[in-house]
Design a protein around this nucleic acid. Structure first.
Length: 262
DNA sequence: AAACCCCTCAACCGCCCTGTA
DNA sequence: TTACAGGGCGGTTGAGGGGTT
């Protein structure tokens, strides 16, 4: 006899969550917690599977979720942890506060893995071809992320407009620092290097042009923050300086040394 | 302008693990 | 020890959207 389904599928809603559903779920969890996911949707008046509620909460509605672009440091950490742990996304997520396993998994499959493959391909083809190909989707993502960085602090409330401010508060503060660091596709382009050894990174740096990768807007307050000042790091003003800045930062943080074994 | 391409990411599916009776 | 329920996890899917032709 087969295993019983986790929940009765009949009559349950599927697909994207509405703001009203989000609000209902958040309100219920804030009031009662989630001692029993299976019973929760019925008690909260939601036509959803318990698993679906859990996933929605874990991946999207939890107040400590850090939304927005992954910083170069975060991406470097993901690469390193994936090297050590494999596809154990929850274990990797445990090392990245505010990030979910689902989000990390998505980032890995859509960005990092592809970049690693590109880098391998480029390394093989560079002698013959020269410059790496710029995938169109990355260009679109650059725009998208630049826009996302602009209203990063509003992402959560915008996605779920009905939510109370108590839930969305804390998300903005958690996000701002990341947004400042990784505004635009800068995170993606600059972090293209961290998973490479220094020589490969240098090779890749030369392949970028400022025309293809216009400098993203930078939150000046970040650069004047005590943490950054303590590092004695100058504010990068050009693309090349930008790349060198991140390389230096990663080397000093130790990430690059760890990654050089890859 | 419109059709097509393809990338992103939220959400789902199904298996596995753990706790409990 | 076994059966079952519930939660967790990793793989996969598909709608939506932006870029290209």
């Amino acid at each position: 006899m087969g295993r019983a389904p986790c929940c009765e599928k009949e009559g349950l809603k599927r697909g994207a969550w509405s703001p009203e559903e989000d609000q209902r779920l958040v309100a219920y969890i804030q009031r009662h917690g989630h001692p029993n996911w299976r019973a929760l949707p019925r008690q909260a008046g939601l036509l959803r599977c318990g698993k679906s509620c859990r996933l929605r909460w874990i991946n999207y509605l939890r107040p400590d979720i850090k939304r927005g672009n992954f910083s170069a440091d975060e991406e470097a950490l993901i690469v390193r942890l994936h090297h050590e742990l494999g596809n154990r996304w929850s274990a990797i997520a445990a090392q990245l506060p505010g990030r979910t396993d689902n989000e990390i998994k998505n980032v890995w499959h859509t960005h990092i893995k592809k970049r690693l493959e590109d880098n391998d391909a480029d390394a093989n083809a560079s002698a013959a071809a020269g410059r790496p190909k710029q995938h169109k989707a990355r260009k679109s993502k650059a725009k998208k992320q630049a826009a996302a960085a602009d209203d990063n602090s509003e992402t959560f409330t915008a996605a779920s407009p009905g939510l109370s401010s108590s839930v969305s508060s804390g998300v903005t503060t958690a996000t701002e620092s990341t947004a400042a660091v990784s505004s635009g596709d800068n995170a993606a382009t600059t972090s293209a290097s961290p998973q490479l050894g220094p020589a490969k990174a240098e090779m890749e740096m030369e392949s970028f042009s400022s025309a293809e990768f216009p400098a993203p807007p930078i939150d000046e307050s970040f650069w004047s923050s005590p943490e950054v000042m303590d590092m004695g790091l100058a504010v990068p003003s050009t693309r090349d300086e930008d790349m060198e800045f991140w390389l230096k930062m990663l080397l000093e943080s130790g990430d690059m040394r760890d990654l050089s074994v890859l």
